[in-house]
């Protein structure tokens, strides 16, 4: 900002836009424009091969009568409710475990990150094999005299297994976010609390948690949006049709199933997409707002 006069003369008026064309072009063509298309088509009865015509709010009315929609909304909502508490808490505990400087601790940090690097398809297939009726987990259960459990045969067990997979895959990612925040917590706070005779649990609740609150909110916001949009884990564990009687379909799975293929109901799928967009945005705002209110009080 210091020397505008010099810099203005050194480039012609056109060149900033030459810099921006590739980036803006891609964003406009493949992100913003498709979004406008989605909004427009949500009010039509378009199909894959026909452009369709205006039907007003009919797609949204159809949604209310669509059992599949309610199942999918329930599953995606449950995903947020049950996954987010674990992705906020477990990675924090993990970060506390590896943030002390001990020999070999960097190795453990990197190792804990491995599931993040792997494709969700790869880890889902690994889990399918582990959760097999005669797989590793049932082998371990049998050692303790339990099981076998048909994890992938029951609609609820399947959904819970997918949730566990999501939490597991995110552990390392959110751990790194917490580690960065922990580095900024003043050590003196802990020491003062320790001198005052506060035990480890007490120090965690009254020193660590308040200092990391904004990071916990950030992780909560990121993971709620991610959990609501869940697709791959459930698709791979439950199969394209969404498990027993389609009871494990999530909202994005429903979008994918409804809107693609030669007979895809593009209009209806666009309306579903809008619902995904609005709820994801609301979730983000809700979590961030809760943070502001709490810090105000």
């Amino acid at each position: 900002m210091k020397q505008p006069s010099v810099r203005v003369r050194t480039h012609r008026a056109a060149s900033p836009w030459l810099f921006l064309i590739p980036g803006l072009g891609v964003i406009a063509a493949f992100n913003l424009y498709p979004f406008l298309t989605t909004v427009r088509k949500a009010f039509t009865d378009a199909r894959t091969l026909t452009p369709g015509s205006w039907v007003g709010l009919r797609n949204f009315q159809d949604m209310l009568d669509d059992d599949q929609f309610w199942v999918a909304l329930r599953n995606s909502g449950l995903y947020v409710l049950l996954v987010v508490p674990f992705t906020v808490l477990l990675p924090l505990l993990l970060a506390l475990l590896v943030h002390k400087r001990l020999p070999g601790v960097t190795f453990f940090r990197s190792a804990f990150y491995t599931p993040v690097v792997a494709s969700v398809v790869v880890v889902s297939l690994i889990w399918v094999w582990m959760l097999d009726d005669r797989g590793l987990i049932n082998g371990i259960l049998r050692f303790f005299g339990a099981g076998p459990v048909a994890f992938l045969g029951d609609e609820w067990l399947l959904l819970f297994s997918a949730m566990a997979l999501t939490v597991w895959k995110g552990l390392g990612y959110y751990m790194i976010i917490y580690l960065a925040a922990l580095a900024d917590v003043p050590r003196e706070l802990h020491e003062a609390a320790a001198v005052d005779g506060a035990g480890a649990l007490r120090r965690f609740v009254s020193v660590t948690v308040p200092a990391l609150r904004s990071t916990m909110v950030l992780v909560g916001a990121l993971s709620s949006v991610a959990a609501f949009k869940v697709f791959s884990e459930v698709y791979l564990l439950a199969g394209p049709t969404g498990g027993p009687a389609g009871q494990d379909t999530t909202l994005v799975m429903l979008v994918q199933r409804t809107g693609t293929g030669l007979s895809g109901r593009v209009g209806y799928a666009s309306a579903l997409s809008l619902v995904v967009f609005v709820i994801a945005l609301l979730l983000m705002l809700l979590v961030l707002r809760a943070d502001r209110k709490e810090s105000a009080s």
């Binding site: 964003i27 979004f35 298309t37 989605t38 979008v255 994918q256 593009v266 666009s270 967009f277």
Partner: peptide, 25 residues
């Protein structure tokens, strides 16, 4: 121009894949 990139960040890919698919077709 800066705002366009921020807005793009707020649109989840999952909610535009169908439009992207028809566009590619």
């Amino acid at each position: 121009a800066g705002l366009a990139f921020v807005v793009a960040l707020l649109v989840p890919l999952e909610s535009v894949v169908i439009a992207q698919f028809t566009m590619m077709r």
